[in-house]
Write a protein that binds this DNA or RNA. Structure first.
Length: 422
RNA sequence: GGUGGCGUGUCCGAGCGGCCGAAGGAGCGCGCCUCGAAAGCGCGUGUUGGGGAAACUCAACCGUGGGUUCAAAUCCCACCGCCACCGCCA
């Protein structure tokens, strides 16, 4: 949610931002009108209510016939107040609904355009030349089979398309990745967290996932729960309705959880393997900080993501995601894309977003300083999303016989230097 | 799942139809006292929203949502959460 005062004073800036995202600009005018109506309704209601408060006091003192008379008038007033209050509530609800429809203000530095209009910020590492190694790389599905690490066929049998089993070294690799991620996060000062993955609507809505992203969220209607698509949701909502002390900021959490995604509208896309799946585990970084520190914190999160990929010895590039491809909460987003040899392409493996005060305003997370109480900034970033990292490791570190070398950083966590054929 | 109890400000805790935004205490801030501190004394100390240039003022908030009433922290209903005990399951 953006600041209503900012919206009133800078409607054109908000229109420009909506346009840059390819979203409806007309909401701006509608939201401002609704806000005017809201304030008018408040004035009407409060005037009546004040009158009633004064009046009610005089009733208590009165006696006999006089009192009977006053009670009659009181009833009339009471009815008026009731109507005015209902109108006020309606106006407030409408104003809030419209305000909630607006996405976060774009960072002026974010490239404008659609999915393809990202800007490459840097390349780290060089894609391996398999011609020089004299063999054709196998894809992760084939390698996963040879190593007894990934079983997509049985995943489909039991749960359907986009489900899989991690078995043997595949399962061990997940544990190693998670342990490495969590231990480096703890070293960096993060508080490790295992959050709930079923959340109430308020958490989902507050994080901004019930807008355009709603179709990708699993909903348990019968019990009014949502399955989180990322631990960003329970981590953001962790401090919902709280006032944080500024001395404690930045607060950094590293959440490990399963993530569930419907992947609606992706039929036929990435159907092979485990690039795009309905369920996976992920270690996510999440920061609450002062708004003025958010840009620097975003760079820090990006750096931790880069450190992780470098430790995995994966060639990758960093892109500045274009406006049309940002989530509604993000003002700016950087993706790290790993080189996937058999696709001859860079594919997103991690991603970090600066949500400024947008989520905090929706979730009512504030800080208190001498200026008063105001919303904090929130940021998130992937440390490791398991399936895609497994894909990147298997494909990039494979040998001609199908065995796979374990990156040095993971060896202590795995107790082996190579994945052997089964 | 059953029974009983509870949910009030930063915290503890009183209030159980109007005089209650709410006693008292703790904490915190400022001042006095002191060489300095502690103790003591005095004053102050919530959030949100509206109006106003401001001083200030009005409204709402006692778990949440409804209801009764001229008037609700206080009465009624539902829900949520916490605690205790019993039953069942892991």
């Amino acid at each position: 949610m953006i600041d209503i005062k900012f919206l009133r004073e800078n409607p054109d800036q908000v229109r420009l931002s909506q346009k840059g995202r390819g979203e409806d600009e007309n909401i701006v005018t509608r939201a401002i009108t609704a806000d005017d109506e809201r304030r008018a309704a408040i004035v009407t209601f409060e005037a009546l209510r004040a009158e009633q408060n004064v009046f009610s006091k005089s009733v208590g003192a009165a006696k006999g016939d006089e009192k009977t008379l006053l009670l009659e008038r009181g009833k009339e007033l009471s009815a008026k107040v009731k109507i005015a209050e209902a109108e006020k509530v309606e106006a407030e609800t409408k104003a809030r609904e419209l305000l909630m429809l607006l996405s976060n203000l774009l960072d002026p530095k974010a490239p404008i355009g659609g999915e393809e209009d990202f800007v490459v910020l840097e390349h780290i590492g060089t894609p391996r030349d398999f011609k020089k190694d004299n063999f054709e790389p196998k894809d992760h599905v084939e390698l996963g089979k040879l190593l007894g690490a990934i079983d997509t066929e049985r995943g489909a049998k039991v749960s359907g398309a986009r489900f899989y089993y991690l078995t043997g070294v595949g399962a061990l690799l997940e544990f190693a990745l998670v342990n490495y991620a969590i231990s480096s996060a703890v070293k960096a000062g993060f508080i490790p967290v295992i959050p709930p993955v079923l959340v109430k609507p308020a958490a989902m809505e507050g994080t901004g996932f019930l807008g355009q992203a709603a179709e990708n969220v699993f909903n348990l209607e019968k019990d009014d729960f949502y399955l989180v698509g990322t631990s960003e949701v329970p981590l953001a909502a962790f401090h919902m309705d709280e006032i944080l002390s500024p001395e404690k900021l930045p607060l950094r959490y590293a959440g490990y959880s399963t993530c569930f995604r419907r992947e609606a509208g992706t039929y036929g896309k990435d159907t092979r393997g485990i690039i795009r799946v309905h369920q996976f585990d992920k270690v996510e970084m999440f920061t609450f900080c002062k708004p003025e520190d958010a840009v620097a914190e975003h760079q820090r999160l990006l750096q931790w993501e880069k450190d992780f990929l470098q430790a995995m010895e994966i060639p990758f590039r960093v892109i500045d995601v274009a406006s049309g491809d940002l989530g509604s909460s993000a003002t700016r987003k950087f993706d790290c894309e790993a080189w996937i040899p058999t696709q001859n392409a860079y594919r997103e493996v991690t991603s970090t977003s600066n949500c400024t005060e947008f989520q905090a305003r929706r979730l009512n997370i504030r800080m208190k300083d001498d200026q008063g109480t105001k919303p904090v900034a929130t940021l998130n970033g992937t440390l490791v999303a398991i399936p895609r990292m497994i894909v990147a490791i298997l494909e990039n570190h494979q040998n001609s016989d199908g065995t796979v070398n374990v990156p040095a950083a993971l060896q202590p966590f795995l107790g082996m230097t190579r994945f052997e054929l089964v």
